[in-house]
């Protein structure tokens, strides 16, 4: 299997390089998509299925879609006009950093295991049996709460830039509608399944949110969903629901137990699932709006 790992690592590097040096944008983005899938595969090899799922769905899939959409709207890239000296300096710096990192990882002081025993000791009290979900929604829930704030901050920023051009209506043909009829409800079903599964197995709010966003995007492309036609207030409320529920739960837990984000004894799982439900809806809606763009709250034309 070590040969397979070596080949996969080499393929990852080649795909990464081709994504960053392709002369045309479509080629670069195609390289990036391949790169993301290969990376997800390598993480399965490293026993990180949760991360691989998220990378394939969000890191590669959704980012690739965002890139393709932007590439379609932008003028083709001009040739690089970077002076030779800057290239040399950058190459030197990059080689130095990569070399330093390589030396560092080859000279790691034996395995220092700090988190593992702590997670194992507390997993029983966390309400869920998937340790990644326990870390995200219980042990380090503050990180996750702030992460939702990052999503919303990005949306606020995009909205503050004002509206952009309306997308061209696409002709999608007769096969698309039956496809939507299967896929849109299925995405809701799969998202719910992933959400429920996240408590015990790989999955959870982020993967579920990404799947939900995929379903919403399919509807958007089919013309069945036009965010611009929905009043902005309710749309924002949908995006904010997850984090609002999360923050409210954090404060409610503080009122009930005296500690921020400490869920009441025995009820952890219900609290976590409720929060995750809100997060899933918000993540789906926020990612969709980051893709489609949105008009500022009250500035409706």
């Amino acid at each position: 299997m070590i040969v397979f790992d070596l080949m996969l690592a080499a393929a990852i590097l080649v795909a990464g390089w081709s994504a960053l040096s392709a002369p045309d944008r479509t080629g670069a983005i195609a390289g990036f998509l391949v790169f993301g899938l290969l990376v997800a595969l390598s993480w399965v090899r490293l026993d990180a299925p949760d991360v691989a799922l998220a990378e394939a769905a969000i890191g590669s899939g959704l980012t690739g879609a965002l890139m393709l959409r932007a590439a379609g709207r932008m003028a083709p890239p001009a040739a690089d006009r970077v002076p030779r000296a800057q290239r040399a300096a950058a190459a030197l710096l990059a080689c130095g950093l990569a070399g330093g990192l390589a030396v560092a990882v080859m000279d790691l002081p034996g395995a220092t295991i700090v988190y593992d025993p702590l997670v194992r000791a507390d997993l029983g009290q966390s309400g869920v049996s998937n340790p990644v979900t326990a870390v995200l929604l219980n042990f380090r829930a503050w990180d996750t709460l702030l992460e939702m704030a990052v999503l919303l901050a990005a949306l606020v920023l995009v909205a503050a830039l004002g509206p952009r051009g309306t997308p061209r209506p696409a002709r999608l043909g007769p096969l698309y509608t039956p496809f939507l009829r299967i896929m849109a409800p299925l995405s809701v079903l799969v998202a719910g399944h992933l959400l429920w599964l996240g408590a015990t197995a790989p999955g959870g709010a982020f993967q579920a949110g990404a799947v939900l966003c995929g379903g919403l995007l399919a509807l958007y492309f089919g013309g069945a969903l036009r965010p611009a036609a929905v009043p902005a207030g309710p749309l924002w409320a949908l995006c904010a629901a997850g984090v609002a529920v999360f923050a409210a739960a954090a404060l409610a837990a503080e009122v009930l137990t005296g500690t921020l984000l400490a869920y009441p004894d025995g009820a952890d799982k219900i609290w976590i699932l409720a929060i995750e439900g809100g997060l899933t809806v918000s993540i789906g809606a926020t990612l969709l709006l980051l893709f489609t763009g949105l008009r500022q709250g009250g500035a409706r034309a």
Partner: peptide, 16 residues
């Protein structure tokens, strides 16, 4: 699912 989406995307690509 792969069969359904493969057929649809193939159709869409060819059409565009």
């Amino acid at each position: 699912l792969v069969a359904i989406s493969g057929a649809t995307t193939g159709h869409l690509i060819a059409r565009s």
